[in-house]
Design a protein around this nucleic acid. Structure first.
Lengths: 202, 202
DNA sequence: TAATTAACTGTCAAGAGTGACAGTTAATTA
DNA sequence: TAATTAACTGTCACTCTTGACAGTTAATTA
């Protein structure tokens, strides 16, 4: 008999809006007023649904972190058993399956505030490791003879190129830069192609 | 006969302190109080020497940007005529000649705020292009026969790896990651070594 | 040593943001 | 249609930050 609750839906709206604020202004730039403007809701309502400023910031951070977690599993599942490393590169550097640009900026904000958010920073580091590990696994499936060190180097290179493209996106870099990044990633795989089983120290 | 002025020295201190604040808290997190704490000066003195909040933020941004400019020329000058590309990788991935970690965080803050600082964002983009161009030139000197597209891809890859290592530094990643990054950079150069003059499309 | 001028301090008013709460509106069901 | 409960609004007090300015201290030279 009560009025139906929209709490969870509103909470989601609010967290998404707060994420946009974090992306633009950083963690310190999150104000209830900005969230209110972004959502079209009145400021006191923001607090009613999502708690105080600190709770909202925590919610954004955990939301983004869990989003990253999902991204990793989706990414891992999208890789076929053979030539998975090439599929990975396609996924990462074609618009297909890109991450939300705002999320990447939240990522950077947490990194910058690592001192004040040690637990979150650690989770983020773990995520980067897990994400890279997915690429490493794909590489090892495709190139079973490759040395672990080389597989790690290539995987880290691919992930670094991906992060870089995404994190520079707000600067609106020339389109060619994305192509260069993808080509560089492919060059790293080419090395494995040409040297699998016959590595020397790099 | 007046008391000697320390204006310029103080201004420098203040801008450096403000840069630290930007690194930790983002552009929105810069407060005169934090700068005062960082420098040990009283808040009103901050304003006396460096102007109001907005002017200080602008000063930080231009200071960091010009620092990047210097970094580029120093970097370019440090590269010998032959095997300059390898020297570049050594410089970028060994502690030698690293950039101030705070500056990298300011970089990220400006990127995030690109909408509100279009001119600064453009300058930053130009800087990234210039910095990459230095690597491209070194590559072309070392591998004169290489296709331009491949040289760009390798240079972008090396720079991306460098940016990535620096921007993740606050997370205190495992030491191995830096080695992986350097190895990936070297693998990119290896590709040029093995394929100079006999390139096919990647 | 006295004049001069810059460095520095204390303090207050104005503005922005947060937190809290009373009160109003609206949707559902008995 | 009346009761119930959640969504929503208006507003006030408190805190934090900025901007401003009067006043004090200190170093240099005439």
């Amino acid at each position: 008999m009560p009025r139906p609750s929209v709490q969870s839906a509103r909470l989601n709206e609010i967290v998404e809006a707060a994420a946009k604020c974090v992306a633009q202004y950083g963690l310190e730039g999150v104000t209830l007023e900005r969230i209110a403007d972004e959502t079209g809701l009145k400021r006191p309502l923001i607090r009613h649904h999502a708690g105080n400023r600190e709770e909202i910031i925590n919610a954004v951070v955990t939301h983004v972190l869990s989003g990253f977690g999902e991204l990793t599993t989706m990414f891992a599942n999208a890789l076929p058993a053979k030539r998975g490393s090439y599929t990975a590169v396609d996924h990462l550097f074609d618009d297909h399956g890109r991450s939300d640009p705002a999320e990447m900026m939240v990522f950077q904000s947490i990194v910058a505030a690592a001192d004040r958010f040690p637990a979150e920073a650690e989770a983020l580091l773990k995520w980067v490791g897990d994400f890279t590990a997915v690429v490493v696994e794909a590489i090892k499936r495709d190139f079973p003879e490759v040395e672990s060190e080389a597989a790690e180097a290539v995987a880290h290179g691919i992930v670094a190129l991906y992060f870089n493209v995404d994190s520079l996106a707000p600067l609106k870099p020339p389109l060619a830069w994305r192509r260069y990044a993808k080509n560089a990633a492919l060059l790293l795989l080419r090395f494995l192609e040409d040297n699998a089983g016959t590595q020397r120290a790099p």
